[in-house]
Amino acid sequence: MRIRSMLAASAAIFACAFSPLTAHADTAGKKIALSNNYAGNSWRQAMLTSWDKVTKEAVKAGVVASADAFTTAENQATEQAAQIQNMILQGYDAIVLNAASPTALNGAVKAACDAGIVVVSFDGIVNEPCAWRIAVDFKEMGRSQVEYLSKRLPKGGNLLEVRGLAGVFVDDEISAGIHEGVKQFPQFKIVGSVHGDWAQDVAQRAVAGILPSLPDIAAVVTQGGDGYGAAQAFEAAKRPTPVIIMGNREDELQWWKKQKDASGYETMSVSIAPGVSTLAFWVAQQILDGKQVKKDLTVPFLRIDQATLEENLKTTQKGGVANVEYSQADAQKVIAEAK
């Protein structure tokens, strides 16, 4: 009897001593899979690398049993649906999903839910109600740019808007957000709008084309991947460089750094980090851990300010996008904010 109680006591001490490590023992035996539809650009590559890095550590720490990544060979919904059905058979407890189509995977996602599997979609989200969605609030991304400008330029002024690829949902959303911001801060006025297609060369040509017809520009609002091109166009036209919002691309940050060192140029940069896959991973882990999580969550933006420029630039690969890997605490914060 005494031995048993001693054993129990020492076990309790052990449990206390190791509680920070074993607090998530609930998910230690769980298997999470990443179903990804496409790996053909630098953003997706960074996304997979982040997943690999963060999940490897999580597996090593015993938070989950495994976290395998699968990418379909062709970016096709039917192929990804088959992939998800295979994952059900392989006995995964959660599937983290970047979907080829918001609707065409619903049958497979429903089958996974019915089998008791947690499905968390991110970036390319699915609209099947039983799945969780970690979506990007593109509207807020646009609005926050104008909000930042209202602090930088309290007096307001003329804005030039560089938009993305015409007819794409993301472009409409960001632009709508920017216009909402202008309504909120009426000291700003959009005097020109061009499509930069999220590419520096296209943006440069488009801005260079419209510049001669424009009055003084106080700031340029952008969508990412177009800030450097816009800056080049202003330089070529020998016009004073306005405040150009950047989009976390490496070339944009390099240019900003150069301007900052030369003349104390100030701006900010905002986009979505490819490491959002790791956020989805932790959200799935939290759900498996029994946490109550709302079905619709929002991805935090990765915002780079004057003070954090150097540190972000250091970790950004040449020709890549600034990235951040999320931690369990970040996921808990996102979950708490959604409540």
Binding site: Q76, A77, T78, A81, S101, T103, A104, L105, N106, G107, A108, K110, E128
Partner: peptide, 9 residues
């Protein structure tokens, strides 16, 4: 099977 469609399905 999929419950909805997509022009590229």
């Amino acid at each position: 099977v999929t419950t909805s469609a997509d022009a590229n399905i």
